[in-house]
């Protein structure tokens, strides 16, 4: 498969996974922001677990959850849908693996806003949701955008969990990360090098964009 094709598959899977987790990550970060104590510590830790677990362990859990013998897998089979070893599986793997990064970034961005604005918005008649959407979120937007970019980068680089549940099918589930592995395995190091350049350029541009945004956010909230 051509490099451009690989790039497109990777971008598509990463985009799908990022879109999938934006709202849940935001909702969880907002919930966490308003809580303290044990519940917050437990829920936050679970949300961040994929960040420190071996990706293969996460992949294995997903494999079990989505497999035919599981409740979810069984239900999907009854309606004739298969997920394992499709692009959907690659999207799910990337989503689960990049979720913690997005969540941590969102929470830091929301934490950096002054809770006083949220309180004042409520005394002006805004419900907690409205106060959050109209005041806290706009004040945190740079950090939020940076979180989306970083999660997107993480999704592009995702390898372990994707290999476990989506396989490495050229044209369908083979991403840049998987293709590099495959080419090196096959002794095609020159081909792999081109892909590495692609990935580095892609990640670097995204990271610089994100750093610039976070830097401005810091300045603004200082």
């Amino acid at each position: 498969m051509s490099e451009v094709g690989l790039l497109l598959v990777s971008l598509k899977i990463a985009a799908g996974s990022t879109v999938l987790i934006v709202l849940p990550a935001l909702a969880l970060a907002a919930w966490s922001w308003r809580r303290s104590g044990w519940w917050r510590a437990i829920v936050d830790s679970i949300a961040m677990l994929p960040l420190i677990l071996p990706p293969t362990a996460v992949g294995f859990v997903l494999l079990v959850l989505l497999g035919r013998r599981s409740v979810i897998g069984g239900m999907l089979e009854r309606i004739g849908a298969t997920i394992l070893f499709t692009q959907t599986a690659a999207v799910i793997a990337a989503a689960v693996m990049s979720f913690p990064l997005m969540f941590v970034m969102f929470r830091a961005a929301i934490d950096s806003t002054d809770p006083r604005y949220f309180q004042i918005a409520r005394t002006l008649g805004a419900s907690p949701l409205r106060a959050f959407m109209r005041v806290t979120l706009p004040l945190a937007w740079r950090g939020i955008v940076a979180g989306v970019i970083l999660a997107y980068c993480r999704a592009i680089g995702e390898f372990g969990a994707t290999a476990m549940i989506a396989g490495n099918i050229p044209g369908r589930t083979q991403t840049l990360a998987l293709a590099i592995y495959q080419r090196v395995e096959a002794g095609r190091e020159d081909d792999a090098r081109i892909l590495v350049v692609y990935v580095v350029l892609l990640a670097l541009t995204s990271l610089i964009a994100s750093e610039v945004l976070i830097g401005r956010h810091r300045k603004k909230t200082a």
Binding site: R116, Q119, I120, R122, T123, G125, A126, P128, A131
Partner: peptide, 11 residues
Amino acid sequence: PPEKRRVGYVP
């Protein structure tokens, strides 16, 4: 809740 109190607060 604060949003239903109709209390104008200027901190």
